Amino acid sequence: MSRYIITVTSSDGRSDADATIGYDPPLRTFFLQAFPDEAGDDLALWLGTADREYETIDTLHAAAQSRGFDFMPLPAEIAADLIADLAAEADRPAQDGPLAALLRHLQSE
């Protein structure tokens, strides 16, 4: 799993300079985490927790914007690294074991 630190802004003017974006190979999705609460236990924004939820950076960006958050423009180096992370995992077989089946079942409920 790749993880890169970026800045995420919110529509109410807040900014999280320690937000995390990355690619999760087992779930085959890009993810974004930002704005932890004061205890650090909960996030105001956590996208990319389901199988193939965000297969492109553009779909992740659109989902963030629909919730009042933005992370564009990405630094060029991070954008290139994310695309490379995705490409490196392109031939990874789908998870078909019992744990993957359980995860798919839980996500369908």
Rank of each mutant, 00 (worst) to 15 (best):
R3G: 13
Y4N: 06
Y4D: 05
I5C: 06
I6Y: 09
T9W: 05
S10C: 07
D12E: 13
R14N: 11
S15E: 13
D16E: 10
D16G: 11
D18T: 15
A19R: 00
A19V: 02
A19F: 00
G22N: 04
G22F: 03
P25G: 06
P26M: 10
L27C: 02
R28G: 02
T29L: 02
F30S: 00
F30L: 01
L32G: 01
Q33K: 15
A34L: 05
F35P: 02
P36I: 11
D37H: 09
D37G: 09
A39G: 08
A39L: 08
G40K: 05
D41Y: 05
L43F: 06
A44S: 09
A44P: 00
L45A: 05
L45T: 03
L45Y: 00
W46I: 00
W46C: 01
L47M: 07
T49N: 12
T49A: 09
A50S: 08
D51R: 10
D51M: 10
D51A: 08
E53M: 04
E53Y: 02
Y54E: 01
Y54F: 15
T56P: 02
T56R: 01
T56H: 04
I57P: 00
T59F: 04
H61L: 05
H61T: 06
H61G: 00
H61I: 04
A63E: 04
Q65E: 12
S66H: 11
S66V: 07
S66K: 13
R67C: 02
G68A: 12
G68W: 08
D70Q: 05
F71K: 01
F71P: 01
F71H: 01
M72C: 08
L74K: 06
L74T: 07
L74Q: 06
P75Y: 03
A76E: 15
E77Q: 11
E77P: 01
I78N: 03
D81F: 14
A84H: 13
A84K: 15
D85M: 07
L86A: 13
A87M: 07
A87Y: 04
A87I: 08
E89T: 13
R92Q: 15
D96Q: 13
P98W: 09
P98A: 15
L99C: 09
L99P: 03
A100D: 07
A101W: 04
A101R: 10
L103C: 05
L103N: 02
H105E: 12
L106V: 14
S108Y: 08
